[in-house]
């Protein structure tokens, strides 16, 4: 494109501009990746004190694998991510179809409300859910006379509820984009050929927006897995997820074990990016 079009009667300004763009690019990627690379490198460092290289080791990974707390946290994180992704993908997709294919009163208002969980700072959502769960669980305990060990407490269930509350919006936004790109004539053609709404959805709409739904689900999964703030304020005893566990360790001290956990989390994230890119690529070529 333009960048490759040589021979524009170049002024000094243009040449310098290009050099600056390159320099800025190198700086940006150095800034983005240097901390990550250092973090990974020192996860193999054979020194408890961290920031001084003392030889290669895998012992921090071994320690991590042996930690019961980490194992529980990973299990909790995956459980929350899978359940909340499943619920929010179904509800988000349904919401997206209603928003894109129906006209109804207060549609624009609801449109605005749907964007709120995406743009609102997570700390505000976190404290509002804390207040809400504390109040509603208290009421329910009173109502059913639950006390002591049988009393309802915040835990993984409240975390899942909270994650679904913000993920519905993310899924809906992604799925709406693919619905908007879908020619409405396809649906009309299917109905014209005798398919009712359900068959039209199952045979025509669903296959064509599957890449969008998968993309939305992947986003929801990542957001759920990564969330710290909202989880922190809505969880309770026995509801420690991996970010909560890691945060606790970071606040206590710096140790190479955290580097090892972080490295594994980085790898998981990268895997998710690769999968999401693959899903998108397939979606764009099949239509």
């Amino acid at each position: 494109m333009t960048g490759h079009r040589g021979g524009i009667p170049g002024s000094k300004l243009l040449r310098w501009g290009k050099r600056l763009l390159w320099a800025n690019m190198f700086f940006s990627f150095f800034f983005l990746y240097a901390p990550i690379i250092i973090l990974v490198a020192f996860s193999f460092n054979d020194s408890r004190l961290g920031a001084r290289w003392a030889g290669f080791t895998l012992k921090w990974y071994g320690q991590m694998m042996e930690s019961e707390a980490i194992r529980v946290a990973v299990r909790n994180s995956l459980f929350v991510a899978f359940v909340s992704t499943a619920i929010s993908t179904v509800l988000g997709t349904m919401t997206a179809i209603a928003m894109e294919r129906f006209r109804f009163p207060f549609r624009r208002t609801y449109d605005g409300i749907l964007y709120l969980p995406v743009i609102i700072p997570d700390i505000v959502m976190a404290i509002s859910l804390l207040a809400f769960f504390s109040l509603s669980l208290g009421w329910m305990n009173n109502l059913f006379g639950l006390q002591g060990n049988s009393a309802l407490r915040p835990g993984l269930t409240t975390v899942i509820i909270a994650h679904v509350a913000f993920n519905i919006s993310f899924v809906a936004i992604v799925v709406r984009t693919s619905l908007r790109e879908l020619d409405p004539n396809f649906e009309e053609a299917a109905q014209d050929l005798g398919a009712n709404e359900w068959i039209t959805f199952r045979r025509i709409i669903l296959p064509l927006i599957t890449p969008g739904i998968l993309g939305g689900a992947l986003l929801a999964f990542t957001l759920s897995l990564d969330d710290f703030v909202i989880t922190f304020f809505t969880t309770g005893p026995g509801g420690t997820t991996l970010p909560i566990e890691v945060f606790g360790r970071i606040r206590r001290s710096i140790s190479p074990e955290i580097n090892a956990i972080s490295t594994v989390m980085l790898l998981a994230s990268m895997l998710l990016v690769v999968v999401s890119q693959f899903v998108q690529r397939r979606g764009s070529t099949s239509v």
Binding site: Y33, P35, G50, A51, P243, I250, N259, V273
Partner: peptide, 25 residues
């Protein structure tokens, strides 16, 4: 390469800077 940090755990990325900027970092 811009997207990878976008999808990467925020806590971990912030911790990376603590590791670098710490007093004995």
């Amino acid at each position: 390469f811009v997207l990878i940090p976008f999808w990467t755990n925020f806590l971990v990325r912030t911790y990376a800077w603590k590791f670098i900027l710490n007093n004995n970092g």
